[in-house]
Design a protein around this nucleic acid. Structure first.
Length: 478
DNA sequence: GTAAGGTTAAT
DNA sequence: TTAACCTTA
């Protein structure tokens, strides 16, 4: 038990989804006022309820241990406590405040309903004790709610949102905040994070570096070597064309504002214009902002509901076998199986393939998109509710997209287009290693030439496409 | 100022 | 087809 007397201007910074020193709004604000103590609450039960992937929990614990050292080097002690569920958070934070005799708490805001409710309860309880609470917008370049359409409502379509976002950000590029400088010794022992967590069977995440400097280095490498070709390479799942930074963004190990500003710097200071690759990548950052703004404005979608209410009436099929075949990469569709096996093996899947596997589940198999959404959350190292939900609702046509046609990807045309040689397919589905590439991209040729130990395709692509279109066209819109 | 109708563009 | 914005009356 810590029994030290801390200076009156000492602050507690509650770290959550912002596990970094650089450009951290709450941490920088607290450090301005005086010495800082950092804390983190492990919520093992809550994380189970949120379907958090074991590899993501492992990544968070590894990041916390690295962060504990990084803070220690600045004489900032980090204390780690457990609050099984968010309900227990007010008591856990309250106890810390009491032990330390601290008068102010700072934290960066989160935007999902459970987190918002937790923070309100913590604030109420600290208010009663006369502790000052400060919360900050930090996770995004533009905080939720700041962009409104001409008629005053939130944007429901990406592309006008993007234009408004670019106009706003171009006129006032964000200032990056420095990491705190080294502070006086407080005489408080740090409490290092655990390597294991009760109730969890963690999955090794060590392919993803935990040090903050490593995240910066990954960003720098991407900007120097790959962003120029991003527009052409990002859709090729066999190529290292994407930035692969999502895991760091989504635990807050890397600041979205820093990433944007460094991308702007490599693009001669331009945003929205200039190099095709840079513009394209920055627009992917805007998708992240768009989906966060959406969950903030429309909490219904966080609670298992479709963004377009009329699509709640779709008659989804129910088939444990089909769902299991999809999860295990045994559907008989080569690209879908490659993606699902990459996910199971590594906790990550290429973005193009995420769309294709999601479309296959929700359209060809006509299984409820929420089953796929949950499975992805349970597997992905970068599983982020807002972004995963946005992507799934886009694929399932229950979301914000206002396309003039009902979109059903044909997985064979997609593999022909983006994995013509079958490099990605053969990497993840070794049974198909000896197949001629052209036999992978055609349902009849595949059926005639597939090896006996690779499954027969579980669904007819043409017929299931029609089935999906009629399942949606039956709906009464209003 | 407002409502109605036209235009634009969508991973 | 739809949202968002623009033009016109």
């Amino acid at each position: 038990m810590n029994r030290v007397s801390l200076p009156d201007n000492c602050s507690l910074v509650w770290l959550r989804n912002d596990l970094r020193l650089d450009d951290n709004t709450a941490l920088a604000a607290a450090a301005q006022e005086g010495p800082v103590v950092a804390c983190y609450l492990l919520c093992p039960n809550q994380w189970q309820q949120h379907s958090m992937a074991p590899i993501r929990v492992d990544f968070i614990l590894r990041r916390l241990r690295a962060l504990c050292d990084e803070l220690h080097a600045l004489n900032i002690p980090m204390l780690v406590r457990t609050a099984n569920s968010y309900e227990d958070a007010p008591a856990a934070i309250g106890q810390l405040i009491d032990e330390l005799g601290i008068k102010q708490l700072h934290f960066n805001r989160e935007y999902l309903v459970d987190e918002v409710r937790r923070d309100l309860q913590v604030e109420q309880q600290l208010h009663q004790r006369g502790v000052r609470c400060r919360s900050y917008h930090d996770a995004l370049v533009v905080p939720p709610g700041e962009l409104k359409t001409g008629s005053g409502s939130f944007y429901k379509v990406y592309s006008p949102f993007r234009k408004a976002w670019e106009n706003l950000v171009r006129d006032s590029l964000p200032d990056l905040l420095p990491a705190p400088s080294k502070q006086q010794l407080l005489g408080l022992e740090r409490e290092p994070p655990p390597t294991q967590l009760t109730g969890w069977n963690l999955k090794d995440s060590s392919d993803w570096a935990a040090e903050e400097s490593a995240a910066h280095q990954r960003l720098a490498e991407f900007l120097q070597e790959r962003i120029e070709h991003y527009k052409e390479d990002r859709d090729i799942p066999a190529a290292p064309g994407t930035s692969r930074l999502s895991a760091w963004f989504n635990i807050g190990a890397l600041s979205a504002r820093r990433a944007l500003m460094e991308a702007v710097a490599t693009n001669s200071g331009e945003l929205g214009t200039g190099s095709g690759g840079a513009v394209c990548w920055m627009r992917e950052l805007v998708w992240r902002e768009f989906y966060y703004h959406l969950v903030d404005a429309c909490p219904r979608i966080v609670m298992g509901h479709a963004f377009q209410p009329h699509t709640e009436a779709v008659h989804w099929r129910s088939s444990e076998n089909d769902l299991e075949a999809w999860k295990t990469g045994m559907t008989g569709q080569p690209l879908v199986d490659a993606g699902m096996r990459q996910l199971a093996a590594t906790g990550w899947m290429h973005n193009r393939v995420r769309m294709i596997t999601a479309m296959f589940l929700s359209k060809n198999l006509l299984l409820d998109w929420r089953l796929g959404e949950q499975h992805f959350m349970q597997q992905l190292i970068d599983g982020d509710f807002a972004l995963n939900n946005g992507g799934w609702q886009w694929s399932a046509s229950t979301g914000t997209d206002a396309a003039p046609y009902f979109r059903v990807f044909n997985p064979f045309s997609q593999s022909q287009r983006f994995d013509a040689e079958g490099t990605y397919i053969k990497r993840w589905v070794p049974e198909l290693a000896d197949m001629a590439a052209r036999d992978l991209h055609d349902s009849e040729r595949l059926s005639a030439t597939r090896p006996a130990h690779y499954p027969q395709l579980i669904v007819d692509i043409k017929a299931s496409r029609k089935r999906a279109i009629s399942a949606f066209s039956e709906l009464n819109k209003s």
